[in-house]
Computed example of a mutant assay.
Amino acid sequence: MTSLVRPAMIWAASWTDTVRDFGALEAMNGSGHWHAEQVEATAEGCARFIATVLASESADPAGTRVASTYYWIADCGPQASVDGEIVGFLSLRHELNEFLRAEGGHIGYSIRPARRRQGHATRALALALARAAELGIDDALVTCDDNNVASARAIERCGGTLDDVHNGKRRYWIRTTASTDA
């Protein structure tokens, strides 16, 4: 079962495996990795990453960062126990700034290469849309690279309507209240 879990050290071993599976920071879209200068696939690196990401969840005074909630996408039971596995990363942005309106959207996510094509992106996006609705976001902007067919399909399965393609990004709007049944 796909779940959204908060970053925590109980997931360190699985997080480390996931980071190694991605291989490069650039492949970890939606993860919040841009807040960490360097991600080490170790328990110590996980602890630093958690501290950095959780500290960056509030908006900054300059307006370059909006309030966000970071999740790890896990394949686990309903209790989200440590017996599960981290399969990806997700960032839920509570509002949009100019950059996010153009390219990033309210929700960014990425599934580790070894766990793709198993429905995790669609299920995680549906869970994130339900959380966006709880924050009062009625229509969520979700983007993906124009050539990312798998992500476009996940977005469309969750009710995404293509608005446009801008700077190589497909921009979709999803009504949050109608998208929680995916």
Rank of each mutant, 00 (worst) to 15 (best):
1 M>G: 10
6 R>G: 00
6 R>F: 01
7 P>C: 03
10 I>G: 01
12 A>E: 03
13 A>R: 13
16 T>M: 12
18 T>E: 07
19 V>E: 00
20 R>P: 07
22 F>T: 08
24 A>E: 13
24 A>W: 11
26 E>Y: 08
34 W>G: 11
36 A>S: 15
39 V>D: 03
41 A>G: 01
42 T>W: 09
43 A>C: 11
45 G>N: 10
51 A>V: 09
53 V>A: 03
54 L>V: 11
56 S>A: 15
58 S>Q: 14
59 A>N: 08
62 A>D: 15
62 A>S: 15
65 R>P: 06
67 A>W: 09
71 Y>C: 13
72 W>K: 06
75 D>Y: 01
76 C>V: 13
80 A>I: 05
80 A>Q: 11
83 D>G: 01
83 D>S: 07
85 E>W: 05
90 L>F: 13
103 E>G: 04
103 E>P: 03
105 G>S: 02
105 G>F: 07
108 G>W: 10
108 G>Q: 00
109 Y>M: 07
112 R>L: 02
119 G>E: 08
120 H>M: 09
121 A>Q: 05
122 T>H: 02
125 L>V: 12
127 L>P: 00
128 A>C: 09
128 A>G: 03
129 L>V: 15
131 R>F: 04
132 A>D: 02
132 A>I: 12
132 A>N: 06
133 A>H: 13
134 E>C: 08
135 L>W: 01
143 T>H: 00
147 N>T: 15
148 N>C: 02
156 E>D: 13
163 D>C: 06
164 D>T: 11
172 Y>S: 01
172 Y>E: 06
176 T>Y: 05
179 S>R: 02
180 T>G: 15
182 A>C: 14
